[in-house]
């Protein structure tokens, strides 16, 4: 029996084999050809696991997966949270030769001043898209989601992501993030409860597919994901609503206790190469935070309406990380919404 137990423990321990890299990534966010290219150039075998929200990634890392992955791809505010919790390892500029490729505006970001733990992956926005075959009316407001016209009722998919739903709801009502004001929180709670009967489903990874298949006529969605839906034949229009939208930047972070730290650095450096950053952009249809990508971009991506908002739109906001007491209130609203 002892032997058996010992055997299972050995089986369960992480493999320290050379030439491995474990990536914890969003679903459908990196082209297989790019992974193959990296593997061919370096001889490193890449394994990719996917998550569908920043929070679930954090939860699973805290549930014992830290030390199993080398890099993860959290959004801006989550980089800050992870850094505060000591979940990130840092690197020096010498270890990252391509660090200088980062666009200046993304170099000294508040969530990682001077880029010690992270590099930009892609940035984009979150708002919503409407199938124009189904509804031709005015869609300039977030009311399309939260107080939808009759044609769209019961045909809306909402991201199954607490943060994004609550922030867009707050923008619609014109209240700040991480507020502790009771009236504002109550208003948010009541507004969401009133909107929910008009929604068909909650889902993040299905957000594109339901628009393409016609299961939903409108949906909360990321700009690039919406561009992909359009490319796959759905007549969807992505909206930069007048109340504002969510802006985010996903970053590749070096995780603490990464089993293959050197390979992780190679991978991050690889992604900072404009050719490779452009490959990701061409695939995911967002925007790279790296200089010199323009010559390698597909024309359709460069000029897509999802990536080139019209002049004069309301600027987007980044998500903020609330403190524990405030977060509890937002958690309660979310549970209320889904109960």
């Amino acid at each position: 029996m002892k032997k058996l137990l010992l055997g299972t423990c050995l089986l369960a321990s992480p493999a320290f084999a050379q030439g491995e890299l474990k990536v914890y990534h969003w679903f459908e966010y990196i082209p297989q050809e790019l992974v193959d290219k990296f593997q061919a150039e370096t001889g490193i075998t890449v394994t990719i696991d996917t998550f569908d929200s920043n929070e679930s990634m954090l939860a699973s890392l805290k549930a014992g997966r830290l030390g199993q992955y080398d890099v993860a791809v959290p959004a801006d505010f989550m980089v800050g949270i992870m850094a505060n919790d000591g979940m990130l390892d840092s690197f020096t500029p010498e270890e990252m030769p391509n660090l200088g490729n980062i666009e200046p505006q993304w170099m000294d970001v508040p969530f990682d001043a001077g880029r010690k733990h992270s590099i930009p992956y892609q940035w984009g926005s979150t708002s919503f898209s409407v199938n124009r075959d189904v509804y031709q009316g005015d869609i300039s407001s977030l009311a399309t989601l939260f107080d939808p016209p009759a044609e769209l009722r019961g045909k809306i998919n909402v991201l199954d992501s607490q943060n994004e739903v609550l922030i867009l709801g707050s923008l619609y009502l014109g209240i700040p993030q991480c507020t502790q004001d009771r009236d504002q929180l109550r208003a948010l709670n009541d507004m969401l409860l009133a909107a929910k009967p008009h929604w068909a489903s909650f889902g993040s990874d299905i957000a594109k597919d339901v628009l393409v298949s016609g299961d939903a006529a409108a949906g909360m969605i990321y700009n690039g994901f919406s561009a992909k839906a359009r490319a796959e034949g759905a007549n969807v229009e992505y909206v930069y609503p007048k109340e504002g939208h969510v802006v985010w930047m996903d970053n590749v972070v070096l995780l603490k206790d990464a089993p293959n730290r050197d390979n992780a650095l190679k991978f991050m450096n690889f992604l900072l190469d404009p050719v490779n950053a452009a490959a990701v952009t061409n695939y995911a249809a967002y925007t790279a935070g790296v200089t010199g990508v323009a010559p390698y971009l597909d024309e359709a991506i460069k000029t897509s309406p999802e990536n080139n908002p019209p002049e004069g739109i309301t600027p987007g906001v980044f998500a903020q990380a609330c403190d524990e007491e405030t977060q509890k209130l937002y958690d309660a609203i979310w549970t209320n919404l889904k109960k």
Partner: peptide, 8 residues
């Protein structure tokens, strides 16, 4: 509570 956003 284990895999979602609330982590409780």
């Amino acid at each position: 509570q284990f895999k979602g956003s609330q982590g409780n």
